[in-house]
Nucleic acid binder design. Structure first.
Lengths: 157, 157
DNA sequence: TTCCTTGCAAACGATTTGCATTGGA
DNA sequence: TCCAATGCAAATCGTTTGCAAGGAA
């Protein structure tokens, strides 16, 4: 599910926490210590992270099954967005209404994924093009994601 | 059936077959009946397909393990490109040098993925924007992929 | 003959779930 | 108290692999 948003400002760490708390309370779901720990770790790590990375970040304080359950819950609440890397392993990142609309730079060399934000004019351009093309096919557009493949700064010859 | 290709060039079904054959022979790998069957099915199905879809298409003529092995081989030879859908299940499609550069319409309702080709001017616009933005981050762009999420014609209210 | 390819079944790894226990409102 | 949340272990599911049989060069 895609939650539309438009922000012109960065959202602070504390704000993210507050928003997550509210979203969960709306769904009468508790924002427990373990869940807070996970959200905080995602902010720290930045970009789409694997369960393994999260597990390491929380230092085994949260057992594997709970971590999976937490991620399923966060995903269900629209707090995170789930993708899969080249190996098919799940990667989670905070949703766009928390982090802002952005795209991904995927390094074909080291596999690292980092976020990139387009300038408003650029984003508008893409939006227009995508909408025109898809609408012509009778497809009702809700959002788009761009993965830019190439070599990151570290992996250039 | 004619497959559209970006630079106003059309590649026929037979041409795809020929190109695949050549690519495999370069790697001294046989283009066996089972493998031909798979490539033909991918052309028929169109868009990124799952192993399950392929298995059905070939009517159990190819056992599961062989199918997996064939896909691994084709992927390795750069004939197919592997992605993963929302459920984490692998999806394969013929590579862009066979099908032309295109993007994807992903239905959030039924999960179907279909190909969409942008008009040359549109593609150029996207290319420019992507390149500008990524280069500014010190990232050397090799390509891009756009997933357009929304509702397909069948799944609209 | 020699090496590639196939087919079956067993193995794997990521993810999910059953069930009894804990803990917060 | 009562129900959500947790933790462990067992189960699931897509996918991979070992090994022996089949086939093409």
């Amino acid at each position: 599910m895609i939650i539309p948003m438009t922000f012109d400002q960065k959202i602070s760490r504390a704000d993210v926490d507050r928003r997550v708390e509210q979203r969960l309370s709306e769904r009468q779901v508790r924002y427990t210590a373990g869940r807070r720990w996970v959200v905080r770790s995602m902010l720290d790590l930045g970009g789409p992270v694997t369960i393994a990375q999260l597990l390491e970040a929380v230092g085994d304080a949260v057992p594997l099954s709970s971590l999976y359950r937490t991620m399923a819950l966060l995903d269900d609440a629209g707090i995170t967005h789930k993708t899969h890397d080249a190996g098919g392993v799940a990667r989670y990142e905070l949703a766009e209404w928390l982090l802002g609309h952005h795209h991904h730079l995927v390094c074909v060399e080291c596999g690292e994924v980092s976020d990139i934000e387009l300038a408003p004019g650029q984003e508008q351009g893409v939006d227009q093009i995508v909408d025109d093309a898809a609408t012509a096919e009778g497809f009702a557009v809700l959002g788009h994601r761009i993965d830019i493949e190439g070599r990151c700064r570290k992996c250039q010859p």
